[in-house]
Design a protein around this nucleic acid. Structure first.
Lengths: 359, 359
DNA sequence: CAATTTGCCGTGCGCGTGCACGGGAACCGT
DNA sequence: ACGGTTCCCGTGCACGCGCACGGCAAATTG
């Protein structure tokens, strides 16, 4: 289906359209100084013979080094956003193939001013494209407005804003993920529903700062509760809040929680930090471990999974998200390739003790 | 970490080594006519300054069209090997970036002569690289010997032969997949082991032709049985054979099986064809569906999963396997990039009704 | 010693595109 | 009629590399 022999070049187009290479070039890149007549001629020929520019020659001649900037919350090793950064690392290999480099700009996700500074820094780089996670919604809207104005394409990862200026979005179906979480928790007794009376669920949540950040896990929680009301309306559900900034306090919090709420058989956590409660479960409930399900393949989570203190992890391929987002932008920039889909919901992986190894 | 400004070119290397571009070129491509002195000089400079050729210029100048051939059993839509072919489709996009095209050569997996013919056809194409699944072990060994002799790199997918001439292998950890299969089947009652007495497992197998083909699922079966003896040594396990060539017979076979083996609560199947027994389960066991687990994300399997007649599917990303295998070969051919790992065991995905949608 | 071969090596051209430069024609105003 | 714009357009060089061609010196041969 490809006839590689008689490759059609720009020169051929020029000849067939009765103009020079320069004119074809001007048409291809919309840089004016072309009469309507010539323009139409060239366009017709291009369409007729299906001309496609040779990207090697193009890149070779261009020889410019564009950069795609990834705008992320800063992270320590083992934290959620590190995975996103890891994805960028993988994308680099692909991007460098096309002479585009990946820069990462970080900000403190608890400090809105640092986000604003990061935006300024980002614009200073004058990137060819941007990948970002809209942690601060309003400020992100400001940034993307500037990007649109400057004609810089951008993609969302993790979450998106409800506008339509972005090129692509890669994220997780949050509602479904909560639903799935509940299923994995309670699948164990679906064949013996009468035992549902003996179950009690604990939902571990994070004490949140009062800031303007968005909390994507609310949707996940909805999915979870909908599953519960549909399948196990009588199961007791309790919530407890822990403070991730003070790891020492967690075991105390949970200890008193378990005392005042005896008979907890299931534990769910809707963000990436199940690993924080794993040690507490192991010491407080060594005898009768509740069945625990959490999210995201952080190293600490995987370790807890292997130890058996977490039963299942649902992962959203955070690294893949950034990788694909970057790739879509690179394809768009270099190959003029429109993405297949704008909104891309990633597949959720279910991880158990027995399939983590080759992850 | 990249200094893109002063890109090092072949000319720079030539200058620094005190030779001409031609000589450097001869060194790079091992085509002789270079004195030992010059050779050493050039090699030293290359290593010192970390010269890397510009592949765009290289491809542009070279302008040759190589092809990678994928050697697979022929398939009908919805069958296992179709997924492998699908992966090739995805790899095409990447490959064409480098002026390499992907050809597929098919053979009848039940006819060894057709395989031999396919090999001849393959060699006729004089491919730059080959991806293959060693269905016929001995004949595959013959083929790979020829490939090695001709210096054509090749990669295995799905299964591999025990030799070390291949560039990469992408497959599934078969033993673990069987183990995982058992866990997913019986996880439901792990907290109430006393009910294990009431369980009965059926293993559905395929009547095999008597040919020299390899059966990779034996290892999977081992993993399954090991899990069972470790965790539920007293559970009854029965096997039943169905004939995939005669779909009409399946329901009869299973009907009489269920009659003579009442109380089957769990069903496992170790190849990609669970979809064959799903309708039978739905009609024969509508009231008390046994819990069924199978393998591979064939469309029919996914449909059965959605209908609820299969509880879990374990998938091995067959499409990814071929995609990655092809990519590894392309990288090796074009970029001279050695693969990171030779043997690559893919992650197993667990698919349930609630996470198939975004697959 | 002349003629030829062999071992090494440098140079020039072409791959297809981006872009700067300059130039011709038409149009304007004086 | 003439200088000055404006609008279009063609050409030449550069990008980095592969490869063919030819050349020079040393080694070999008759």
């Amino acid at each position: 289906m490809e006839k590689e022999k008689g490759k059609i070049t720009l020169k051929d187009v020029a000849r067939m359209a009765g103009v020079s290479r320069g004119t074809v070039d001007r048409v291809l890149h919309n840089r004016g100084d072309v009469s309507k007549r010539s323009y139409d001629n060239v366009m017709r020929v291009i369409k007729d013979i299906g001309y496609e520019p040779n990207i090697y020659a193009s890149i070779l001649a261009h020889d410019q080094n564009r950069s795609v900037v990834l705008l992320l919350p800063s992270y320590h090793t083992g934290e959620y956003w590190e995975m996103a950064a890891r994805g960028a690392e993988q994308a680099k290999a692909y991007a460098r193939t096309f002479n585009v480099s990946i820069e990462t700009v970080l900000y403190d996700q608890y400090d809105i001013d640092s986000f604003r500074e990061a935006c300024i820094q980002l614009l200073g780089i004058s990137p060819a494209a941007v990948v970002l996670a809209p942690v601060f919604r309003n400020e992100t809207a400001v940034l993307t407005a500037v990007l649109r104005e400057r004609g810089i394409p951008y993609s969302y990862v993790d979450t998106k804003l409800e506008e339509d200026g972005y090129l692509t979005f890669y994220g997780m179906p949050m509602y479904k993920s909560g639903y799935l979480c509940a299923e994995l928790l309670f699948d164990s007794i679906s064949s013996v529903p009468e035992s549902a009376d003996q179950m009690k669920v604990a939902i571990i949540r994070i004490e949140r700062d009062k800031n303007r950040k968005s909390d994507p896990t609310v949707t996940r929680r909805e999915g979870f509760f909908d599953y519960m009301t549909e399948h196990y309306p009588n199961v007791e559900i309790r919530s407890v809040f822990i403070n991730p900034r003070d790891p020492g306090s967690i075991i105390e919090t949970l200890s008193s929680f378990f005392e005042s709420n005896p008979g907890i058989t299931h534990v769910a956590m809707f963000n990436s930090r199940v690993h924080l409660i794993a040690p507490a479960l192991e010491t407080l409930r060594a005898g009768d471990m509740p069945r625990a399900v959490g999210f995201d393949n952080l190293d600490d989570n995987l370790a807890a999974l292997r130890r058996g203190s977490i039963r299942y992890l649902i992962t959203q391929h955070t690294d893949e998200q950034t990788r694909l987002a970057i790739n879509s932008l690179v394809d768009y920039l270099v190959l003029n390739k429109e993405p297949e889909r704008r909104d891309n919901y990633m597949h959720m992986d279910i991880l158990s003790r027995n399939n983590v190894d080759d992850y």
